[in-house]
Design a protein around this nucleic acid. Sequence first.
DNA 1: CGTCCCTCGTTTTAAATGCAACAATTCGGA
DNA 2: TCCGAATTGTTGCATTTAAAACGAGGGACG
Lengths: 169, 169
Amino acid sequence: MEENARASNEAEGEPDETAAAGALELDRFLPYRLAVLAHEVSRALSSIYRDRFGLSVPEWRVIANLGRHQPMSSNRIAELGSMDKAKVSRAVARLVEAGLITRETDARDNRLIVLKLSARGRRIHNKIAPLALAWEAELLDALTPDERESFDRLVAKLQTRAEALRERG
Amino acid sequence: MEENARASNEAEGEPDETAAAGALELDRFLPYRLAVLAHEVSRALSSIYRDRFGLSVPEWRVIANLGRHQPMSSNRIAELGSMDKAKVSRAVARLVEAGLITRETDARDNRLIVLKLSARGRRIHNKIAPLALAWEAELLDALTPDERESFDRLVAKLQTRAEALRERG
DNA sequence: CGTCCCTCGTTTTAAATGCAACAATTCGGA
DNA sequence: TCCGAATTGTTGCATTTAAAACGAGGGACG
């Protein structure tokens, strides 16, 4: 049923049979599992603020960032969330349009754009935040407190490493 | 510099001031961090098979799945990777076009489509797999063996929980 | 000053995405 | 047996995305 796995050991240089030894088992391949998990988590969580407040993922991320640190530039939000600056730019445009944030240029550096939550934006943020935290709590119910702390730490380590790898190319 | 954080405690029922207590700190909000990490990891890894083999993420995922379990239906690949079936369908179409996989209907159930790697597909898989594993190894260098095992286990737990939450609504 | 280079954010464009509609097929129960 | 429900994969469509080009500033250095 799997006998054709070696049917392709042909001349092509490079790795080949080698792959059979240290085989790629998708079930244990971290990038894959990370992507699947993150996708499902994001999907479930985003339905909360999409259904009730009509916000997209990038829009909510802008609000969530401003909810924590204010004011903040588009560029900084993009960096923090590893989002394309174009994506942030559009999310910001829609949020300004919807009256949830304010956008003005920095007095000292006219390239910079100073973003803040409007009163209405703050209100919506304060409604969504507890829902988001409650959902997270349900997810984290799968782990013990020790495990949560451990997971947190490991994610941070991997994040740091991933950034280092990116800079190195 | 942050004094306007409470400038919006108005009448709107529901959570509000409450949010200030159990505040949403994005830096510690798991769904957000997971998304950021997964995005960076995926981005870095995908550049490997995109640059050298012209494969998109969904395309590589189809190949990676078939590299492990063969044959496999489109639907199963979609389920395993929490991908939209349309996304898989299109990736499959391109891979068939490129001659990397074969597609035939199941004899017993004509709705099912039986996917297999072609010789060429297997060859490409066997070239990419070691590169992917090497990249993963570099990432995991940030963790000790114990930590890796721990992380693996915790991801699995969260994955299970996330699925349970999805089914529940 | 003036020139060159860098940064921030927007816009443009082609490709990818999610969702819903759809056809084909199978399955279960009256 | 027959009809309605469920499943599998494809397609159409509107939206979103990534990547690159772009415009407007800013800063360094002659």
